[in-house]
Design a protein around this nucleic acid. Sequence first.
DNA 1: AGGCAGGTTCTTA
DNA 2: TAAGAACCTGCC
Length: 274
Amino acid sequence: MRYILEEYIDLKQIAESGQCFRWRMGPNNEYLVIAGDKYAYIKADYEGESTIIEIECDKKNDNFWTHYLDLETSYSDIRSKIMKKDRFLGLAADNRSGIRILNQDPWEMLITFIVSQRKNIPAITACVEKLSVAAGQKIGKARSGEDIYSFPSPEALAGLSIDDLNACSLGYRSKYIKRAAEDVLGGMTDLDALSHLDDEALHAALCELYGVGVKVANCVVLFGYHRLNAFPIDVWIERVLTEHYPEGFPFKRYSPYCGVMQQYLFSYYRDTHK
DNA sequence: AGGCAGGTTCTTA
DNA sequence: TAAGAACCTGCC
């Protein structure tokens, strides 16, 4: 399927933005993207101001992928809220204008960001992949010939022992993952029901989960529930705030899109402070 | 060899 | 209520 839109979209920027960990770059800047129990090959070409997105997937999943990429949202409109005098954000946003906040699954985000604590991106990627091989299902074959595994269901994850989880290099996070899986499976935690809560209540509810603190909860709110105002503060964003916003970040000004601004800041700052 | 990486929990004052 | 230590693992 081809999709043309009047916005700049940069798959590489998205793949490296730290919101998704199952994008694999292949030849010609084409990505194999796995989300939940689906996968697609996605590439982008450019014509003037337009981006042409090409998605190769099961026909019945066309809508899933256009929504996944958040193609219905205008990010240039969001960027137009950036104040001229906010030079650092302006620079970051200009530089990272191809980033979008994907529509990802709350369950997958919950587990992924529990995994993420005190890990760098390559380590997170490796863990998520090991988890998927250990408890996911084969859903197809990549062009490379490798099997593609779905992200594990709560039931499948709950079925793993602590030893199985440790084998995925989860370390002390194994017990968090196990508990989260058991709670979701048993209905103690109803991730669908949480979607009815407002941002603040949603964040608070997620913080109740074992192994989920303020930062991870914010990532789940932003990436799993697509609440674009959520603003996760990790060590990188902490540095941005200290260096560039000593008087405080203008949250009110950028509401309800603070999370989008956070992504621009995070991606740009991290790349320029390697 | 020791420190640190996109945090959270547990312990201690 | 708040600071500090401990926590798995892999990589520099």
